[in-house]
Design a protein around this nucleic acid. Structure first.
Length: 869
DNA sequence: CAGTGAGCGAGCTTCCGCTTGACTT
């Protein structure tokens, strides 16, 4: 059940008797030795009552929470709440096996008060940081924003990377690629080689460029080839003899990666299964609850003896003795601040079920498969490979060819770790070179000049952010997924095709924090704090002086925030300047907007809702401002109505408008530009076409219903009007053009099954078909959804009761479930509609239920949803 | 959907880290 007491989360949790106090909002009495105000959160009241009740008939209390700082604290809070009159023991165990628990019961101790103080200090410090900085942001930048020890560093990482990308200047270079053929008796076969040196000097490649200038790093002795030079060289080398000048074989071994922790599981799952950190945890939780895997929130790579034995037996059975590592492999945890309350994440039990044996499907199968493979691989032999490097010479040009031979795959048979960089994945591929030797004269079959451009540093993905945070010791296994949720929720980042893109707000907030609270947003802040907490836990440091110095001292946070509050000008804090833009971006109450001087006038223009700094360049700024000062661009005159057509950029991106807005015509016809059409490449024909949407394509041959094509909030679509049955919508594919799509093609698209928004492609088909519903003959099927198994009939879904197996379901049972659901359908529809209107736009992934239902609309929070869906 | 960027004021927002269950699809 986790923590059963905590500082009050919001104003409603603050007890009446302290509500008037200055420190009430903090929940920490900073005037009286930082005494924390603890309350039992609403959702924990029940468990506390139950525990109190249970204690009445008990003759002993055994506290068996996790053996880490937070776990120790939970035990202490329980003692405070329960006030037991019976003997109390504190027991700890890391494995749920009979042996381990027996042993733990025999070796109980008392609650470690110092460790508890360390946790309390951590808790109070986080509160002080978050609840003093956030209000400053509300006053200076925008309401509803937040800052914290963890999230602000995460946001700053994203912002810094985006700054690097903006500062990045592309460089280009050329080199040559040769396809050679060995012609020796034994050494037959083709291979490739790349130009590396010219007259003994290294030929420049990407790593020789300075990302900030796009030029070769000063002082580097390299030859930079442009296209002409590369082609000239190619001409000169063509037909000349090639010689192998050197050959090197380097044997290497690789060890399997350690078993999964929460962080590495999230990384791999994001890279290989494209699951978000949150989805990964949701699926892992399901696997854990069904007994397939061990606990999924852990920072330890430790495997129990039971696990090692099980993995080794798997290896032996499936791959044979050869593939077993000579000694059992035990990994030691190296990550900063690890507390190792649990084992690594692995298949549960003393013998591992193979993925196939589990009968799992969909994401659950995929994730279990990943965990199973990674665990089994840890007990497999090293992989042995030979790196082959061949140097070749033709005239004054040096070429290199590198190959790789896998002599023994070892653990690679079971598991290859994923990469953030897709090019790096190629490193694991075997590249076989013919058995060349020094002095060989291979034939050149083909010589090619190839142009390259340097790439800006990649944006963070969920995976790489979690990796960085973990390596800095920032955040805990239970929080990695929600950190991402928080920064997306607060409008600090958007997820665009797996990348985390910081928003204008993120830039403004980061700039403020960097300028005025540099220590707090430094990644090392957490590791320094952890050091002190460790000292508090061992008794080498005292908690009160630490908090006093941090908060109340001359250079303390309280003083600092107060001073800054009068110094910081909101207007400045709300402004984001970019080196390459003359105009400034300001964070307004309705979202970011551009502000520029036009003579003595100030011009402002909204930035479309889902745009980030990444989308904004000087040209676009110009366009947005011009629209304001000179009115929108005219595309042309509508051939039928004779009205002008304008192209404008509004809060939802570029669109066309027929005629002007006048008193008589307050709502002129408007239409969004679809993807791929920009104000620049827009033709009058396209504009007229867009304004004529929806377009009637014809009637459905089977039903006679109208079929239309148009563009909606989710892009271009076709719709089949089935009369009473409602309307059947399908999105058009990227290759389809909404203006030219034919009836025939529309019918084709409509014939495809509807893509479930939430179901993955693997689980969209029914797990089992139960037969036709006696009422209307429509099928009743079992599906697997994000909340478990359910039966579906038409639009009605009913969850299967817990423990109900798919194979034991009957049509009758399903009808019963559906009937009870249908009878309550009215009520739930009503509830749904009120909820939808309260929530406005159905905000994206939420970190907390509280924020999910709030009416706050951050300016940019809804984009990720739109883009990903 | 295709705007806005002023000002007032009551009441509120906000942190990190531990966790399951109530809800719906």
């Amino acid at each position: 059940m986790g923590h059963v007491r905590d500082l009050p989360q919001s104003a409603t949790d603050i007890p009446a008797n302290v509500k008037g106090e200055k420190w009430a909002q903090l929940g920490v009495n900073v005037e009286s030795d930082f005494e924390p105000l603890y309350v039992i959160p609403k959702d924990k009241k029940k468990i506390v009552t139950q525990l109190k009740e249970a204690l009445k008939s008990a003759d002993e209390l055994v506290l068996a929470t996790d053996e880490d700082r937070e776990g120790e604290s939970i035990s202490w809070h329980l003692l405070q709440l329960l006030q037991p009159k019976v003997p109390v023991k504190r027991m700890v165990f890391h494995e749920i096996t009979q042996d381990a628990i027996r042993k733990a019961l025999k070796n109980c101790r008392t609650v470690d008060e110092q460790l508890v103080r360390a946790q309390e200090t951590r808790r109070i410090l986080d509160r002080l940081v978050g609840y003093t900085l956030s209000p400053l942001l509300w006053k200076k930048i925008a309401k509803g924003l937040s800052a914290g020890r963890v999230q602000s560093v995460a946001v700053r990482l994203l912002v810094n990377r985006e700054r690097q990308r903006r500062a990045f200047r592309q460089g280009s270079y050329w080199d040559l690629k040769a396809t050679l053929e060995a012609k020796g008796k034994e050494a037959k076969g083709e291979f490739e080689a790349k130009l590396t040196t010219l007259a003994g000097t290294k030929v420049a490649n990407g790593s020789d460029f300075d990302p900030d200038t796009g030029q070769i790093v000063a002082g580097r002795n390299v030859v930079l080839l442009n296209e002409t030079q590369a082609r000239e060289l190619l001409e000169r080398l063509t037909g000349k003899p090639w010689t192998v000048t050197d050959l090197e074989e380097r044997p290497t071994t690789r060890k399997p990666a350690p078993p999964f922790t929460t962080s590495t599981l999230q990384q791999e799952s994001n890279r290989k299964l494209r699951l978000s950190a949150r989805d990964t945890m949701r699926v892992a939780q399901n696997l854990y609850e069904q007994g397939y895997i061990t606990y999924m929130r852990t920072d330890s790579v430790h495997l129990s003896e039971q696990a090692i034995a099980a993995a080794r037996s798997c290896v032996e059975q499936m791959y044979g003795k050869n593939y077993l590592s000579p000694q059992p492999r035990q990994y030691s945890t190296k990550s900063k601040g690890a507390q190792e309350a649990h084992e690594a994440i692995r298949p549960a039990g003393s013998s591992f079920r193979t993925p196939k044996e589990t009968g799992l499907s969909g994401r659950e199968f995929d994730l279990y498969d990943l965990i199973w493979k990674r665990t089994v691989a840890t007990q497999m032999a090293d992989s042995r490979q030979t790196q082959v490097i061949v140097q070749l010479q033709v005239e004054d040009a040096g070429f290199r060819s590198s190959g790789k031979r896998i002599d023994f795959p070892g653990f690679l048979r079971a598991y290859v770790e994923g990469y953030d960089d897709p090019e790096a994945a190629l490193e694991d591929r075997e590249v076989i070179l013919p058995p060349l030797k020094k002095g060989d004269r291979p034939d050149c079959k083909n010589l090619e000049a190839i142009g390259h451009e340097t790439q800006p540093p990649a944006r963070y993905t969920e995976a790489s952010l979690v990796k960085t945070l973990e390596s800095e010791g920032i955040g805990r296994p239970s929080t990695y997924a929600s950190i991402i949720g928080t920064i997306v929720d607060r409008g600090y980042a958007q997820i665009v095709s797996n990348a985390l893109v910081p928003t204008f707000t993120a830039f403004a907030v980061t700039a403020l924090l960097e300028q005025h609270f540099p220590d707090l947003v430094d990644p090392s802040f957490t590791s320094k704090m952890e050091q002190t907490l460790d000292d508090i836990a061992t008794g080498e440091a005292a908690w009160l002086p630490y908090l006093r110095k941090f908060y109340s001292g001359d250079a303390g946070l309280e003083t600092l925030v107060k001073a800054r509050e009068s110094q910081i000008e909101a207007n400045v804090a709300r402004t984001v300047a970019f080196d390459d833009l003359e105009a400034k971006v300001r964070i307004g109450s309705y979202g970011p907007y551009i502000e520029a001087q036009n003579g003595s006038d100030t011009v402002t223009a909204s930035i479309p809702k889902d745009w980030t700094p990444a989308d904004l360049d000087a040209e676009l700024v110009e366009k947005l401002l011009k629209q304001k000062t000179e009115g929108p661009d005219k595309v042309g005159i509508h051939p039928e109505t004779g009205e002008p057509i304008y192209v404008k950029i509004g809060p939802h991106g570029p669109y066309v408008q027929l005629g002007e807005k006048t008193e008589d015509k307050p709502k002129p016809k408007q239409a969004s530009l679809p993807k791929g059409v920009t104000p620049d490449n827009l033709t009058l024909e396209t504009a007229v076409g867009l304004l004529s949407l929806p377009r009637l394509l014809g009637t459905h041959p089977a039903t006679g219903g109208k079929i239309q094509a148009s563009i909606g909030p989710y892009g271009p679509y076709v719709v089949h009007d089935q009369g009473k049955e409602g309307k059947d919508y399908r999105s058009l594919k990227v290759s389809d053009n909404v203006l030219t799509v034919t009836l025939e093609r529309a019918l084709e698209i409509l014939a495809e099954p509807k893509k479930g928004r939430r179901t993955s492609s693997k689980s969209k088909s029914a797990l089992r078909e139960l037969g036709a519903h006696p009422g209307d003959g429509e099928p009743v099927n079992i599906f697997e959804g994000p909340y478990g198994l359910y039966v579906k009939h038409g639009k009605t879904n009913a969850g299967l009761p817990e423990g109900q197996k798919v194979e034991d379901m009957t049509l009758d049972k399903a009808l019963e479930l559906l009937a009870s659901k249908e009878s309550s359908a009215k009520k739930s529809t009503k509830r749904k509609s009120t909820k939808a209107s309260a929530n406005g736009n159905g905000t994206a992934t939420t970190a907390k239920k509280k924020t999910a239902s709030s009416t706050r609309k951050t300016t940019t929070a809804s984009k990720s949803k739109t883009k990903t869906s």
